[in-house]
């Protein structure tokens, strides 16, 4: 009985020729004298033969390659598109502070301009007087608050 247990443990390996030497000789000898183990061996053999005869599938030579080419190209295209869009959104994110800064600066300038006491005299008079032009005056001219 102890021998049978040992054989049962080795049976599958024996079938696959994955044991050699003493172990293989032991199994072979035991199978010759033990009907129970021999029956199990034959059943294992039948299972193995059935597996070996199992239907095999095959693909046409270039079928998979053409499918793969299509997938690889479309994935690359998608990746390029994604990276292009990501780049664009990154750029726009980086550019957003510029108009905001411009608006803030304009507001600050307007406040400064309206706060400055500018003597109302014409641009011609100012130029003729030869005095220095302040930022407020210049902006006033540009924005039309100064005449």
């Amino acid at each position: 009985m102890k021998e049978c247990e040992r054989v049962k443990k080795l049976l599958s390996r024996y079938l696959d020729e994955e044991i050699t030497g003493i172990d293989a000789a032991f199994v072979k000898q035991h199978l010759d004298i033990c009907n129970i183990c021999n029956k199990e061996y034959l059943e294992f053999l039948k299972v193995k033969q059935l597996m070996l005869k199992k239907e095999r599938k095959s693909l046409p030579e270039d079928y998979l390659i053409s499918l793969l080419k299509e997938k690889i190209t479309s994935r690359q295209y998608a990746e390029e598109n994604i990276s292009w869009l990501t780049g664009l959104s990154n750029l726009s994110r980086r550019l957003i502070p510029i108009p905001i800064a411009a608006i803030v600066l304009s507001v600050v300038f307007l406040i400064v301009v309206s706060g400055q006491k500018i003597t109302a005299y014409s641009l011609d008079e100012h130029i003729l007087s030869g005095s220095q032009t302040t930022t407020g005056m210049a902006l006033g001219v540009i924005l039309g608050t100064q005449n």
Binding site: K9, L11, S12, R13, D16, E18, E43, F44, K46, V47, K48, L50, M51
Partner: peptide, 16 residues
């Protein structure tokens, strides 16, 4: 691997 294959054959024999 050896024990997995052995177990598989036992299962398969039973199933068949």
């Amino acid at each position: 691997v050896a024990s997995k294959i052995s177990r598989a054959r036992q299962f398969l024999r039973g199933e068949l």
